[in-house]
Design a protein around this nucleic acid. Structure first.
Length: 507
RNA sequence: GUCCCGUUCGUCUAGCCAGGUUAGGACACCGGGUUUUCAUCCCGGCAACAGGGGUUCGAAUCCCCUACGGGACGCCA
């Protein structure tokens, strides 16, 4: 504790802008934030957008917006700036380049010219021999000068970490004490890809050091990469930060929390009508209790009393029913009727949101009182459905298949708007050789809970991707409970079929 | 498969580090009360130290083994 007080504590959360803003990111951000606040330090937000195939601007904005919605305020970041920026890794390429050169010079890393074919052959050979797949050090034996020349001639190459062949890496985790991993277990990690971008490992270590991060609080999934990071700190002659690895949030089946099994997008909870303070409070309850065991607490309550040694290490299951109870307490105990009005206004009862619905509803109205039944599904988390209505004009098992396919196709959508959503269904109808009229009743009911409703594509656009996905999942559950679901085998063959007809799925 | 991390009610957890508790609280669930209904609220109930070996007068707590769960093994992060 004493050495924590001596230097200024700095923590960070470093999400990569791919896909939806994840509750796991918020969970990590919260613990980093309260740790920094407790010790009078700073909390930094850094965007790790080194995967140029998957990173998107939209996703970065979503991260900023969602963490902002939760009131997890960062002291430095890409939007607010700071003295040690830039805070977006894609803007720091020259910095990484300098450091890569340093490693190349001091032998901490080496150039590797192996083709991806050779690498994948190597991998399959190793798998066949039941060995752990890893790089065999082929290019390590290259003469460095010769390698440098080949590189400057334009031959594509990657830069790999030079890992000791013997001994073990010992490092400390503040919650687990000593962790020992044999160097023989550590792969010669690629540090710079052939496109010139750094990988996570390099960028992360360089940035954490240059941004004076004192405590790296991150998910348990990183423990095995610890040796790579320690090795990099050593190669640069830097003192490593302290590490705190938090247990991972889990699905009810105990696997790592994933959107396949649970709503993981922060926006899902916003759109489904949760209060940000309740969501944060719940996240704080995962793996942690305040010293006095309070259940209702704010970020500042948690900051004032935070003690990282109270973190429990079993992976907590993200259980929505307790979150709902907690949200209910916030609603009932913290809000007056007037507050509630204001909050409902912030949520969906405002001109902007209603304004999107009204043009769709207007042609379908005879009286005002027709409006609410038409639009109520946009204000609900889920809708009431049964097997018959869900099946529509399809056989129930076909409905299951098609809903699954739609889920996968919808995930590919970059822009969640009516027209592209419509295109998805048109494409499915075409490929499956169905008329849209046969296909759509199922989706109408799944999304709106009724066959009398607003135009579906526009309605889905308004509902948002997260709630739409939840409804499709619910429909699948209803079908499955009635015995019309997809078996494990069926799902596998569907995936193959899907890949053949529609192309690869994305994550 | 190899390595790493973990394991207290169905779930979140307290207790463990500094061995002695009827193993406590909360969610969920069940029952009762209040409420014109429902919800809230109140009362009650259910339910756990993964297993086996040590150490000790005494183990949820310290040590070892086993089992189980999870994670990592990418030019993803």
């Amino acid at each position: 504790m004493e050495n924590i007080a001596q230097s200024v504590v700095r923590t960070r959360v470093a999400p990569s802008p791919t896909g939806d803003p994840h509750v796991g990111t918020a969970y990590m951000a919260l613990f980093n934030l309260v740790f920094a606040r407790k010790h009078g330090g700073q909390f930094i937000l850094r965007i790790e957008d080194t995967d140029r195939a998957r990173s998107t601007e939209g996703s970065e904005k979503a991260i900023l917006d969602s963490l902002g919605w939760l009131d997890l305020q960062w002291d430095e970041g890409p939007d607010v700036g700071g003295d040690l920026g830039p805070y977006r890794q894609s803007e720091r390429l020259d910095i990484y380049e300098v450091h890569v050169q340093k490693l190349l010079e001091n032998g901490g890393a080496y150039r590797c010219f192996c083709s991806s074919e050779r690498l994948s052959d190597l991998r399959s050979e190793q798998m066949a021999r039941k060995e752990t797949p890893r790089y065999d050090g082929h290019c390590l034996s290259l003469d460095p000068e010769e390698a440098e020349e080949r590189g400057s001639n334009g031959t594509p190459y990657v830069v790999r970490l030079n890992v000791p062949t013997e001994g073990e890496c010992i490092f400390h985790d503040e919650l687990r004490d000593e962790i020992r991993i044999a160097w023989s277990q550590v792969d010669h990690q690629v540090l710079r890809k052939s496109d010139g971008f750094p990988t996570y490992h390099l960028a992360n270590v360089v940035d954490d050091h240059l941004m004076n991060i004192t405590h790296v609080i991150r998910g348990e999934e990183w423990i095995n990469s610890g040796p790579k990071h320690i090795l990099l700190y050593e190669a640069f002659g830097w003192e490593p930060p302290k590490f705190i690895h938090l247990p991972l949030l889990r699905n009810p089946d105990k696997s790592k929390l994933s959107k396949r099994k649970n709503p993981t997008s922060i926006f899902h909870y916003r759109d489904a009508g949760f209060l940000p303070e309740a969501v944060v409070n719940y996240l704080g309850m995962m793996a942690y209790t305040l010293p006095d065991q309070r259940e209702i607490f704010s970020i500042s309550d948690m900051s004032e009393t935070f003690d990282h040694s109270r973190i429990s290490l079993g992976g907590p299951i993200f259980d929505v029913s307790k979150l709902k109870w907690l949200n209910g307490r916030y609603l009932r105990e913290q809000l007056s009727a007037n507050d509630l009005l204001a909050r409902l206004g912030e949520w969906k009862f405002n001109d902007e949101f209603l304004g999107k619905i009204l043009p769709l509803a207007l042609p379908r109205l005879e009286t005002f009182s027709d409006f609410s039944p038409l639009a109520s599904f946009l204000f609900s988390e889920k809708v009431g459905i049964d097997v018959d209505s869900i099946s529509g004009k399809l056989e129930p098992t076909d409905a299951s298949r098609l809903i699954k396919i739609a889920e996968w196709e919808l995930e590919k959508l970059r822009e969640w708007k009516g027209e592209p959503i419509g295109n998805v269904f048109n494409r499915i109808a075409e490929i499956e050789e169905l008329k849209l009229k046969q296909l759509m009743p199922t989706f109408f009911v799944a999304i709106t809970g009724s066959s009398v409703s607003l135009p579906l594509f526009e309605a889905m656009a308004i509902l948002g991707p997260d709630l739409s996905r939840t409804r499709l999942r619910l429909a699948l559950e209803v079908l499955s409970e009635a015995g019309h679901g997809l078996s494990k085998k069926g799902l596998k063959s569907l995936e193959k079929e899907y890949q053949a007809k529609y192309g690869n799925r994305i994550d």
